[in-house]
């Protein structure tokens, strides 16, 4: 995501969640969302099959 796409997404998702973000908070929120997106990217890129179901009852 480009920085413009991140900002557009953050503003739209915040509106959908009815989560107010002030002008003072916005730079920190954008920076943190960019960091989260970067961390999530390799997880999202991992190839999982239909049998790779999340554990509905977690029993280590």
């Amino acid at each position: 995501m480009t920085s413009d796409e991140i900002e557009a997404y953050v503003r739209a998702a915040a509106a959908a969640l009815e989560l107010p973000i002030t002008a003072e908070q916005m730079p920190g929120v954008l920076a943190n969302f960019a960091r989260l997106a970067a961390v999530a990217a390799p997880v999202n890129a991992f190839d999982l099959g239909p049998a790779d179901e999340a554990a509905p009852v977690w029993r280590p």
């Binding site: 997404y9 953050v10 998702a13 915040a14 969640l17 989560l19 973000i21 908070q25 920190g28 929120v29 954008l30 920076a31 943190n32 969302f33 960091r35 989260l36 999530a40 997880v43 999202n44 991992f46 999982l48 790779d52 179901e53 999340a54 554990a55």
Partner: peptide
């Protein structure tokens, strides 16, 4: 605040990866 906006697909993928 930023984390509250994460797409649901990221979360579901992470949970499925966890089992793998």
């Amino acid at each position: 605040l930023a984390n509250a906006l994460a797409p649901a697909a990221w979360y579901a993928q992470a949970q499925r990866f966890r089992r793998w």
